[in-house]
Every structure is written in structure tokens, then in C-alpha cells.
Amino acid sequence: MAFDSFSAFLVMEGHGPYVWVCYGVFVLLLAGMMFWSFRTHQDIYQICKRGYEQQSKVGQPKPKAPATFTRVEVSQD
């Protein structure tokens, strides 16, 4: 390692804040962009899937109601 201790590594002889801010912003933006792109892909995929599933439901003929034997009251008047 190029530094004597972990605290020396963090401080970097006074240049630590400059270096760590750069790396922080870099990791944040790169990870954010990767996560956001992945999330967008998943969302679009799910929207497409829901749309296709709805289409296939609408396109299919409605299943017939099962036959029932209910008593029908007919007026004798």
C-alpha cells in the first residue's frame, strides 16, 4: 500500500477531500445511471407484458356461463 495507515489513506496529505468528492460523484452517477437504466427496462417490459396479457384476454371468446337449475317464479295472474 502507498500509505502508512488507513487515516493517511483517507487524508491523502490534504488532497483527500478533492479525491473522495470526485470518486463519490463518479460512483453515484455511474451506479445511478446503471440502476435507472435497468429499472426503466424492467418497467417497459412489464408494461408490454400486461398489454399482451390483456390483449389475449380480450381476443379470446368469453367462456359460457355454466348451466344452472334455479327455480323461476312465474306469476299466475
Binding site: 500500500m1 502507498a2 491523502m12 496529505e13 488532497h15 479525491v19 470518486y23 463518479f26
Partner: peptide, 27 residues
């Protein structure tokens, strides 16, 4: 990044601030 930040030697002129190069140049 780990190699550049922790193990690469210090620059004789710019000191440790040069370690930003390991993300600046790729970007």
C-alpha cells in the same frame, strides 16, 4: 480504481491529487 487509489505511488509533482486521473481519463 483500488490499485490506483491505494497502491499506485504518489506523483512527485502533484502529490495524491493525481489519483483523480483513474476516473477522469476513463470518463
Amino acid at each position: 480504481i483500488v490499485w490506483g487509489l491505494a497502491f499506485a505511488p504518489k506523483d512527485y509533482l502533484q502529490g495524491n491529487s493525481y489519483r483523480i486521473i483513474f476516473i477522469h481519463v476513463p470518463a
